[in-house]
Design a protein around this nucleic acid. Sequence first.
DNA 1: GCTTGACATTGACGCAACGTAAACCTTTAC
DNA 2: GTAAAGGTTTACGTTGCGTCAATGTCAAGC
Lengths: 252, 252
Amino acid sequence: MDWSIQHIARLAGTTSRTLRHYGDVGLLQPSRIGGNGYRYYDEHALARLQRILMLRDLGLGIPAIAGVLDGQRDNAEALLGHLHWLREEKNRLDRQIASVETTILKMEGGEQLMAEEMLDGFDNTQYKDEVEERWGKQAYADGNRWWAAMTAGEKDEWMLRQKQLASDWIAAAAAGEDPTGQVAQALAKRHANWLGSIPGTPGGGTGTPAKAYFVGLGEMYVADDRFAANYGGTDGAAFVRDAMKAYAEKYL
Amino acid sequence: MDWSIQHIARLAGTTSRTLRHYGDVGLLQPSRIGGNGYRYYDEHALARLQRILMLRDLGLGIPAIAGVLDGQRDNAEALLGHLHWLREEKNRLDRQIASVETTILKMEGGEQLMAEEMLDGFDNTQYKDEVEERWGKQAYADGNRWWAAMTAGEKDEWMLRQKQLASDWIAAAAAGEDPTGQVAQALAKRHANWLGSIPGTPGGGTGTPAKAYFVGLGEMYVADDRFAANYGGTDGAAFVRDAMKAYAEKYL
DNA sequence: GCTTGACATTGACGCAACGTAAACCTTTAC
DNA sequence: GTAAAGGTTTACGTTGCGTCAATGTCAAGC
């Protein structure tokens, strides 16, 4: 009573290629080989295969699986050893995750990389046409001028502040706030105050930004993926835009 | 101003083979190649190399590193994507770890292997002298007698129950509980009730274990590494011992 | 000028566990 | 009879280098 390679593979949820591989490395031999070279597996082979796949799912390598199945090694010991290295791997990943997270934070915080990107969005003529089309020539010129006038340090600072505000915006959006509600309007006010305090920007230095500039900026947050990402994606950015627009209509 | 491949490798903390590999795959080209074919790297190449190694330490693959360094991809986006898969990998490991742990528990609970280990501790004369020296002749005799009287199935059950209780003990210890506090004392009570319910043990069958046996068992959890491991190491076992001792003093 | 030792070069194999053709034969179904 | 489905073996691709192997080059000492 035996079955073809394809049949056994489907039964066990694997592929015929894998079975042939296991045969090649001596992990699981067919119970019978036909005169035509076809491999056939019986129920014992199937049982062994199922144990193999179970151990494989636990993350054991082929030599380890062979060791366990052939009883050369103490089963519990092998698994405990494996568990040990699984834990080490996990620790390694934890450290890497922490490193990547802090790296991203540093970048966001202003250490050149992100600033370079921002520069792409403002300074580089690469997007000039696109920006002009979206927000008009004057807006582009204004946006570009004040950004270009800033020193690298100021740009970093600008990005940092942008990030700080962004986290509050994201929190408000996530909390299901109304863009025209108190919380969102308070944030819009802070945002406006900040922009208004930046010399060189339209309205900058007077304490309140130019209305068109403020509204246009909100639109840009949504339209430009690189900005939208800062505000938790398109939805978050749309929330910010709506709040900014409402604020501008009332107070600017 | 440039340096040999070996020199740069040492400066950056890698190997010349790696540098040649990076050259082959187009990740880092030497700044100059001598008439003899020797590779030379200048300060710019070194800077790039250092960024490469940093990204490598974050776990990025060569194509991803190239993408980031050549600015083809958004830096933050690339890192966020990488972060995503790091987290997935970690989740996968977590699941595997859990699977391996329960597999080991099952084996311990019913499939003889761990029982054999336990048997080492109790049944085998290998540790007889040591045990006698630690807990006295009578204690060893008692411990050995009831253990030896159990059937294999009972032994397995005992180990499983032991494991079940252990996880609660570990959790309590990890939570910073007081050994004499409510939580720990409740656990000690469960532990005592369980031991007291096992016929053949000192006090077993009466519902409450013998005081000396109970206290001695707690000591053993600490003294014997094989038991201590079950309770999260020496510290965890000491927590259990203290709780058991306090409970015995009050109620046994 | 020669030897020696350290350092360079370019291949090319090895690893883990199969996926994925390529080229070709068998069995099954219509 | 022929085509579809399934089988075979052979062998390359994957990831990031480690590790020979065979050989050329350079600075230093005799």
